[in-house]
């Protein structure tokens, strides 16, 4: 009996140590970023590719020309309601006191400067694929934006998702920054892969998720129910998207479909971002979308 008790105690100690180890926030290697210098002009391109403004701009500010990333937009999901935070350079309410390494940890490891996990409503699972130079360039650009003193609204998340530490397990299971599509790709397709799988984070909406909110990589870009509950987000693999590469590139530029209707819903906001990319990058995205595995409907 004593022996049994000891082994139970031993096993539970091992289990909790393993639990603590798995759930501990992991950070990026600081030296990767401290050795780089950011370029704000290049960073602006990363900013539009990343679609940062679509979520972090306050809703009542959307008509304004300036980029004020004061946050506040609500995202209703099965796990609770998330509110986009203030990511302006304001020292008290935004990212004013952050270093480039803090920013890289947020973007690529989903970890805050005080060592807490972020919820994956923030698509760090995709941003983890950014190359380090793009991260520091983006950071340089974000510091040129106007500050806002709007305070962050806490997320409204129910138990057990309210325990942030548990996200460590989620990350081990579902955050895989390696490339999704493998095999021989042309230079343009590779560039498209980088953009789609990384900064543009297309797969976050266009791929289905499992019951725990992890992306189902076996059905990459194969379409998904809309988390808002209304309608579906389309399958954009060649099994469903029969547009030519020129059609796709034009859609990402002007929002015109091949029938010359214009983009609707959330995609209209995405087009506001992709309209600012270079012709080459839009063509690269189109080339990649033709190369992804077909996912039947």
């Amino acid at each position: 009996m004593n022996k049994f008790f000891k082994s139970v105690l031993g096993l539970s100690l091992i289990a909790s140590a393993a639990g603590l180890w798995i759930t501990a926030p992991r950070t990026v290697p600081a030296e990767t970023f401290t050795s780089l210098t950011g370029d704000a002009t290049r960073g602006e391109q990363v900013f539009w590719t990343g679609g940062c403004a679509s979520c972090h701009t306050a809703e009542d500010d959307a008509q304004d020309d300036r980029i004020l990333l004061s946050g506040g937009k609500a995202f209703v999901t099965d796990f609770g309601t998330f509110y986009a935070p203030n990511i302006t350079p304001d020292p008290a309410h935004g990212l004013g006191g952050w270093s480039a390494v803090d920013f890289a940890n947020a973007m690529q490891a989903g970890v805050s400067p005080d060592g807490k996990h972020y919820y994956p409503a923030f698509p760090y699972t995709s941003y983890a694929r950014l190359n380090p130079q793009d991260v520091v360039d983006l950071w340089a650009f974000m510091q040129t934006l106007p500050p806002s003193e709007v305070a962050n609204r806490p997320h409204d998340v129910s138990f057990p998702f309210s325990i942030r530490r548990g996200l460590g397990v989620w990350k081990v299971l579902f955050s895989h920054p390696e490339p999704v599509v493998t095999g021989d790709l042309t230079a343009a397709q590779k560039r498209g892969q980088y953009l789609v799988e990384g900064p543009a984070h297309c797969g976050e909406c266009h791929s289905p998720r499992n019951s725990m909110g992890g992306i189902d990589y076996t059905r990459w870009l194969g379409g998904a129910p809309n988390p808002s509950g209304k309608g579906t987000i389309p399958n954009i693999t060649p099994a469903a998207l029969d547009w030519s590469e020129a059609d796709i590139a034009e859609y990402l530029s002007s929002g015109f479909t091949p029938e010359y209707d214009s983009a609707g819903g959330e995609m209209a906001e995405v087009i506001e971002n992709t309209a600012r990319l270079s012709d080459e990058d839009r063509a690269a995205i189109a080339a990649y979308l033709k190369a992804v595995p077909r996912i039947s409907q």
Partner: peptide
């Protein structure tokens, strides 16, 4: 000039047209 046209069409559709059901 196409981009500007797309932006003008899209701005109105985004604000004032319901998504396809």
């Amino acid at each position: 000039a196409i981009g500007g046209l797309g932006g003008a069409c899209g701005a109105c559709h985004k604000a004032y047209r319901a998504p396809k059901s």
